[in-house]
Write a protein that binds this DNA or RNA. Structure first.
Lengths: 245, 245
DNA sequence: GAGCCGTAGTGGTCGGACCACCTCCATGGT
DNA sequence: ACCATGGAGGTGGTCCGACCACTACGGCTC
């Protein structure tokens, strides 16, 4: 053991963690570790920025960057005038950034994302067919009829999203639902739809949604899986063909 | 849209976009929009922090926070002394944060993540069975035999990860491979293994890997899917049982 | 021509100052 | 005793200016 010259706490902890990268990066890891080790519980409030900075022996600016980084990751939440809190660390919080990935993807990667969505969506729909309750089914039907009752693309899209969101929720896996939410995020869907809807895809979409709904009512997982896979696969194939020329 | 920088374009655009949130948040959105709109190509270098800050009419500190945020998201890359660059926006870059989610998840969410992994991994393995080349197959075998040749848990885990990574790569969907990488990230796997291996799971794991390998050699997608699902499902069930009491 | 080296420019860090906002409690009225 | 009100303190948000660490590039030497 080395001598302990009654040094300051920051000097001590600084010695424990030699310079691996930037100061900010180290701060991020430290806070992440605190949460992973259970030192910080979900919903708990952190010390102030000034305290944290002093505790790790870094400036407030660097600490703020670290906090900002963990904020965009959905791990921390800063409330102006109140303090910094650990989020509930739920799927929705942590997977919010997933939508960013979808929004920034183009070309071949869009097809890949759609393929992932097809896999997850078909399984989620199959699970939902087995587990969905009457109340949840009523909610799904609400969006189905609302979607059929209008011709406004904006509204159709909104109910389309809600339709699938309700089904994903009924599947009983919040993590999967959150990922599907990201894969169907506003910008992502809107971008694809812009060109897709020009080919009279509304009628086909309505037919496919009806098929999915029938499978849910019948509580038939296999039929639901097939219907959902076909539904997403339809868009996927169209996108793939758009990419060819 | 971008205005031609005549005199006070930044003050003007700042006035056009009234306070939606924090200044930093707006800066993040602005840069994200620049990339999404094609104004910034992958690999391209951005103006300096000082320039960007002046351009958006904010301080360098705030701009730095915005850049840090986009850095942890895998969108930007800052090279000390050189400049800030847009990443290649490949799946690996953008989904790196996915591992953070896995590392910070506990309890029921771990099971949910494992369920997602089972779905993706089984599909990826099925795709790999149909598409895998002899070279890729040789690589898979390398890790299989290496894994069977040692008793060091550390080494076994490493080859286990590589085994699945090669298969995911052979599936031909980089996005899916990147997601699986995150779902199998070091900490995540190590944490589960710590307790799992105590029940003599090594032998079973080896048997299951052998089954997956056989299906790949036979180019039998259905067998591969079943073997992979069973493999992940095994751990999933164990974890589920650990959670019950 | 190859290699060295200094300089300019970049991101990284720091400390301090002020502002905007929230929280809490003492105050005073009912 | 209760509640509305207001102010004070504390918190995150923003800005500034300075300096450090590192990289890139060009001129210099050999």
């Amino acid at each position: 053991m080395e001598e302990t010259p009654s040094a300051e706490a920051e000097a001590e902890s600084a010695a424990n963690a030699p310079q691996k990268g930037t100061v900010t990066q180290r701060a991020i890891e430290r806070i992440k570790a605190m949460i992973a080790d259970g030192g910080l519980e979900p919903g708990q409030r952190l010390p102030t920025e000034r305290d944290l900075a002093a505790r790790l022996g870094i400036s407030r600016s660097s600490m703020r960057e670290a906090i900002r980084a963990l904020t965009v990751l959905g791990v921390l939440e800063a409330r102006h005038g109140s303090g910094i809190y650990v989020t509930q660390l739920e799927a929705g919080d942590l997977l919010e950034t997933f939508g960013v990935v979808a929004d920034l993807s183009r070309g071949p990667r869009l097809v890949e994302l759609l393929e992932v969505r097809r896999i997850l969506e078909s399984t989620a729909t199959a699970l939902a067919a087995a587990r969905i309750t009457d109340d949840q089914l009523a909610e799904v039907e609400k969006h189905l009829t609302a979607m059929n009752a209008t011709d406004d693309p904006e509204e159709i899209l909104a109910h389309d999203l809600a339709f699938h969101r309700e089904i994903a929720a009924a599947a009983g896996n919040e993590t999967m639902a959150a990922m599907l939410e990201g894969l169907s995020s506003r910008t992502f869907r809107a971008r694809v739809w812009r060109g897709y809807q020009e080919e009279g895809a509304f009628a086909r979409t309505r037919r496919e949604h009806a098929a999915i709904h029938r499978a849910l009512v019948a509580h038939d997982p296999e039929a639901a899986r097939a219907a959902a896979a076909a539904h997403v696969g339809e868009v996927e194939e169209w996108l793939r063909s758009q990419l060819r020329p």
